[in-house]
Simulated scan of single mutants.
Amino acid sequence: MSVPFEIRDIEPNLLEKVLKLFPTRKDGYVHAGSKNYFLLSKYREEATHYYNLELRPDDVWIVAFPRSGSTWTQEMAWLIDNDLNYERARNEKLTQRSIFFEHSLLMPNGYIKDLLEKNRDDPAKLEFLKDKFTPSYERVAKMKSPRHVKTHFPFSLLPPKLLDTCKVIYVARNPKDVAVSYFYLYQLKGALQKDAEFSQFWDLFQNDLVNWSPFWSHLEEAWSFVEHKNLLVLFYEDMTKDLSAVIRRTASFLGKSITDEQVSELAEYLCIDNFRKQPSLQHVMDNAKGMKEDVPGFYRKGESGAWRSMFPPELSAKADEWIQEHEKRTDISFRY
């Protein structure tokens, strides 16, 4: 099996630019497909497994550019599709109920080998790590139906029959808030140069040099299928403004009946303060030796408009020009 698109190393001058801000990822990056999607170099060895995954008609997929509300949507969609089984949701981690398709892509092989070596004398942690580092596409293949899967891949890098086979929810968010949230995530993970400034990160973001970019190509691919019966497009800004309405739309899309009382209960469960407190939703990894705690702060403010504190007037004007140029290509108009 293979993939019908090219995967190539990024140019040396671009790699140099990226490594100035992300000095720890010396394993490199690739461009994939005609839109030059920017991915970690490990993608080259795993691409065929992602593209050729065997789909099931009762799969539900959450597709989104990073930091667009995909985790929030994962939990909402899983609960609706599983008849509001809060007991299971509270006791089984979301990362097991709704697997992040390319999670293993983020783990350099050297990092995996080092962690396994550091924990070789602790059977329980070693077993945990081996399970964690199993390629995500293998974990997805072994899931019981109905499967829920999250991915940041664009449609062109996913199984080609995805929309004709499965229900897909695409989540979009305005690029200014996406970039701010992405910047803080990289900070929390210790991936950025210590003195990195947001303006430097925005330069990479706008020039399609952060993971899973280009942002606009990702969005435009999804929008080209907006009339497809198996695609529901949600906007993060709508979720923050009227979550109950989004819950009703999602339930209708998934073919589920839901009462007003159930909508209110689910909206309360999903509110950001409650979301942070749920143990099954935590992104802090078990404290295996050598493993970073993935992030107190993974769930940030759960609101729109946080970009205002990060964009000085000159940078905001530059961003607006870029945004307006791209919005002309679709009938999408984000709320800021």
Rank of each mutant, 00 (worst) to 15 (best):
F298W: 05
A47M: 06
A77F: 05
E46M: 15
Y37V: 12
R308S: 11
D273N: 06
L21G: 00
Y182G: 06
V210K: 13
S252N: 13
R173W: 07
L243P: 05
P12A: 13
R335F: 09
Y186N: 03
Y51P: 05
Y170S: 09
A64L: 09
P123A: 08
P135A: 12
F128H: 11
S68K: 11
E75C: 06
C271Q: 14
F133W: 00
Q262F: 06
R248Q: 14
L185T: 02
K130A: 11
I258S: 07
S316D: 12
M143N: 11
G28S: 04
A124I: 12
K130D: 14
D195N: 13
H49A: 02
V60L: 15
G110H: 11
F133I: 07
F153C: 12
L162F: 06
T24M: 10
A317W: 01
T151P: 12
V263P: 08
L53K: 09
D27Y: 13
P154T: 03
L79F: 06
A64Y: 06
D320M: 15
V3I: 08
Q262K: 09
N174Q: 14
H326D: 02
W212P: 01
S252E: 15
L94M: 14
F198S: 13
F65P: 01
E102H: 05
S280E: 00
F5G: 01
L40W: 14
K301D: 08
S257W: 05
I10Y: 02
N52E: 04
S316G: 05
R56V: 01
L40C: 04
L231W: 00
E220R: 01
K20C: 11
N174P: 02
S98A: 15
G110Q: 12
H31F: 15
S41K: 12
P175Y: 04
W72T: 04
F253R: 07
S70H: 01
A222D: 00
L79W: 06
F100Y: 14
D260I: 05
P135F: 08
V226W: 12
L126I: 04
L116V: 09
Y236F: 15
C271R: 15
E117P: 03
D59E: 12
L55N: 12
E6S: 14
V140T: 10
A196L: 03
A245M: 10
Y184R: 13
E197S: 11
G28C: 11
W78Y: 15
L192F: 06
W307Y: 10
H326V: 02
T24V: 09
R300G: 01
V263E: 06
L79M: 08
K289Y: 03
P66K: 12
